[in-house]
């Protein structure tokens, strides 16, 4: 079974984000890291692959400047290799263009199963994996809490408003996982050393047969008009607990008539 995991490399979420004033796009000039949300997908892929003989995990990512540091993290966890799409013409791509690029890259890997996070931490559009599935002509099961497979079918517990659904789906298919569903492994020292020599194919748009005019800011069919500061919500009273913290809260709840 060949499992492909979509991995996004994003600006460090611990650092404050900003929009570039000139282009109104997210500033991605700093060092990029693997989106934490994707560590669950990578772990899930590794676990599913280990249960089916002859399986392998390939990472697929799109990032500017041939950025690979986030991919090395996932390779160190145990993925076999990676495909990275990097092309200056991709700057400013909307989610549909990104989906077209990723779908083209994934198609080359001929996967049986594609795993992605339900949404990225930075953009959180949350539609890309399903767009990729539609482009690849595959079924999709989003918001998976638990996944198992025998290599031909997947069984998924899918999150719903009321609880969860047992969903079955033949492969190939696209699955998105929510955070916390598995415990991502920490890369071992051996894994980190091995990751340095694992293969990362860096592809441009020409390699994928995609017209540069149809993606990136040239091909984008949505525009940001302006960015405004949100209405500030004023802070209230801050007290330091000196054994009376609970009573202060009780008094506040009484005032609100909650109790």
């Amino acid at each position: 079974m060949h499992v492909v995991v979509c991995v996004k490399q994003i600006p460090d979420p611990a650092a404050p984000g900003s929009l570039r004033k000139d282009t109104l796009t997210l500033d991605r000039s700093g060092k990029l890291v693997m989106d934490d949300s994707d560590s669950y997908g990578v772990e899930m892929a590794l676990q599913l692959a280990s249960g089916v003989d002859g399986s392998e995990v390939t990472l697929v990512s799109m990032a500017p400047g041939s950025e690979t540091s986030g991919l090395r993290t996932a390779l160190a966890m145990g993925a076999a290799d990676a495909i990275l799409v990097s092309d200056d013409a991709l700057a400013g791509s909307d989610a549909l263009s990104t989906a077209k690029v990723l779908a083209a890259a994934i198609r080359r890997a001929e996967p049986d199963l594609v795993i992605a996070a339900t949404e990225s931490t930075d953009g959180y559009t949350g539609t890309l994996p399903v767009q990729v599935a539609e482009l690849l002509g595959m079924p999709s099961v989003t918001f998976a809490k638990r996944v198992s497979t025998d290599g031909t079918t997947i069984k998924v517990e899918r999150q719903t408003e009321a609880g969860y659904d047992d969903v079955e789906c033949p492969l190939p298919a696209v699955v998105t996982v929510t955070a916390g569903v598995v415990e991502p492994r920490y890369p071992s020292f051996k894994g980190i050393m091995a990751a340095k020599s694992k293969r990362i194919d860096v592809l441009g748009l020409a390699d994928l047969g995609i017209d540069a005019a149809e993606v990136g800011s040239r091909g984008a069919r949505e525009e940001v008009l302006d960015v405004a500061d949100a209405e500030a919500r004023g802070g209230g009273e801050i007290v330091v607990d000196e054994g009376d913290g609970a009573q202060r809260i009780v008094a506040f709840l009484e005032q609100l008539k909650v109790i």
Binding site: T127, V130, Q131, A133, F143, T160
Partner: peptide, 23 residues
């Protein structure tokens, strides 16, 4: 913006070849 709503939106986006504005 629900579990199924996003699935339908993403697939319609490809079928109509139109991007999506979310959130």
């Amino acid at each position: 913006a629900s579990y199924d709503g996003r699935d339908v939106a993403g697939r319609l986006s490809v079928r109509l070849d139109r991007p999506v504005l979310t959130n």
